[in-house]
Design a protein around this nucleic acid. Structure first.
Length: 469
RNA sequence: GGCCCGUUCGUCUAGUGGUUAGGACUCAUGGUUUUCAUCCAUGCAACAGGAGUUCGAUUCUCCUACGGGCUACCA
């Protein structure tokens, strides 16, 4: 079981975008490969021609590269390995490990409806001539595996020892009536040809594993090591899906989360480093990640924690980097502004915005005068006309200020309140409202300094005309 | 129905045959801040239930309950 080769793969089927569960499986495979100096491959399982779409392959690849989970060439498509499948079917057939099944889909599903969950073995021991006759008549058929008596045991890197009696296993289909191979067979052949040493996948595959091991052995292949990852669940404890809202990687990208944040949280769901640390860059994860610390039970996706992690990453991320990302997410962001202006804005918002979208929303008043005033804030800060009088006076003071710097601004404000016997809030709140349209944000002096004298006075004058209402 | 897997605060988790069962997120309160955020402090909050083993079980065993997965000519 000790391997010197570490080849792993992520094998999505292109029937939808990359969802969180898939992303985590990919991440864990990637981390395992990187840590062990192994190789991380990608295989597109496109044998379900009815549901597979090329567009999804592109989307999945796109999401994966956004997450930074780079894979080895070549990219494998199952549909391109049809020849190998044929060869191995032939060999299984000739050694009697496969048999023709002529049962119709309808008959079988009727049986199931009646409570017979297992294939009854109708065609398991068909007479040779019988088969020939039916074949000559052009009857449609599938190939099933003749499961031998006994049991299959394997050592899961996460779940430990798992033992299944063959009595529990169905003679499952490997070739459909249209001649196409099924998953349990293709996965085995592919993993063999790709020289996969460790199969790391979702827990939903645990019960497939004995079937696949049987196939590995029947084909004379080496059996890889298996590791099954617990599921990611929604708040209702059910497997995470579109029903739960944001379940696709693209959504998180669009909402302005950094890939490192997603990786970080994904890793923390069902794994812990054995210390109290929770914040990791992807490179940190490579060093710290270990399959043996992976949980057995499913973990519920917690939007709030994801958001917190994202905020933490934002604070640590370099300002230049954030600016690049912001411009990438919204090409119009900061258009026409100097780079130093943008740097100052991002510096101010870094501890406040927890995602790129929040940056964009919260930075709006640095580029545009407020279109409207927050109602609640208006009540609080500019309730009556006495504020107008006050602001008018203050505006005059500001007008005379020559050096528009935050320390001078602060000076003016402080003199003003002393002179009029007011609390600071009495002038700062209305200013905020006039300039930002909201009461929340960075220090008012910082905002005013950045905005500049003209813009500040302009906005105050607009507010003086429009408020209170 | 059968088989497999699981069960520590609301959530993610640490942990041990004897602990005040620890941390993080959330929430609440207080401090810092002109506001918000940050930061700091404090607080609320958990070993699913029942037997057994044991001097002693959250920890080991069994049973029950609950949850999840599989039981496809999907992957």
């Amino acid at each position: 079981m000790t391997n010197s080769v570490f080849n792993v793969r992520f094998a999505p089927s292109p029937t939808g975008e990359l969802h969180l569960g898939g992303a985590r499986t990919a991440l864990f495979n990637w981390l395992f490969a990187k840590y062990n100096n192994g190789k991380f491959f990608l295989r597109i399982e496109d044998t379900d021609t009815k549901r597979s779409r090329e567009i999804y392959t592109d989307q999945i690849l796109d999401s994966l590269s956004w997450l930074g989970l780079n894979w080895e060439e070549p990219l494998i498509f199952q549909s391109e390995r049809l020849n190998e499948y044929k060869i191995h079917i032939k060999s299984l057939l000739s050694s009697g490990q496969l048999y023709h099944c002529f049962c119709s889909k309808n008959d079988l599903s009727e049986l199931k409806d009646k409570g017979h969950f297992k294939y009854p073995g109708t065609c398991r021991e068909l007479d040779h001539n019988d088969i020939k006759t039916r074949l000559n008549q052009g009857a449609s058929f599938t190939y099933r595996v003749r499961i031998p008596d006994g049991n299959t045991k394997y050592e899961d890197m996460i779940y430990g020892s798992i033992n299944v009696d063959h009595k529990e296993l169905d003679d499952f289909i490997v070739i459909r009536s249209d001649g196409s191979p099924t998953y349990n067979f293709t996965a085995v052949v592919d993993d063999h040809y790709m020289d996969i040493s460790h199969v790391i996948r979702g827990e939903d595959h645990v019960s497939n594993t004995p079937k696949q091991i049987l196939l590995y052995k029947a084909l004379g292949f080496n059996v890889p090591v298996f590791a099954h990852l617990p599921m990611i669940l929604g708040a209702d404890g059910k497997r995470l899906s579109k029903r739960h809202g944001a379940a696709g990687v693209q959504t998180f990208r669009e909402e302005g989360y950094l890939p490192e944040s997603l990786n970080n949280y994904l890793a923390l769901l069902g794994w812990n480093p054995g210390t109290d640390e929770e914040l990791f860059s992807s490179d940190d994860l490579i060093q710290k990640f270990n399959l043996s610390k992976v949980q057995k039970k499913g973990a519920i996706w917690d939007e709030k924690k994801m958001h917190w992690i994202s905020g933490q990453h934002m604070m640590k991320t370099g300002t230049d980097h954030i600016i690049d990302k912001l411009r990438f997410n919204d090409p119009d962001w900061g258009k026409g502004s100097s780079i130093s202006y943008l740097v100052s804005i991002v510096e101010l918002l870094k501890v406040r915005a927890k995602s790129l979208s929040e940056f964009i929303a919260q930075s709006d008043y640095f580029f545009n005068s407020p279109l409207s005033y927050d109602q609640e804030a208006l009540q609080k800060a500019w309730g009556d006309n006495s504020v107008n009088t006050r602001m008018q006076l203050l505006a005059v003071n500001l007008l005379t200020l020559e050096h528009w710097r935050k320390d001078y601004l602060q000076n003016i404000f402080e003199l003003f309140i002393k002179e009029h016997g007011l609390g600071l809030g009495k002038i700062i709140m209305p200013i905020r409202l006039a300039v930002c349209g909201t009461l929340n944000g960075p220090a008012v002096y910082d905002i005013l300094e950045l905005l500049g004298k003209d813009e500040t006075l302009k906005r105050i004058n607009v507010a003086l005309k429009e408020l209170p209402k």
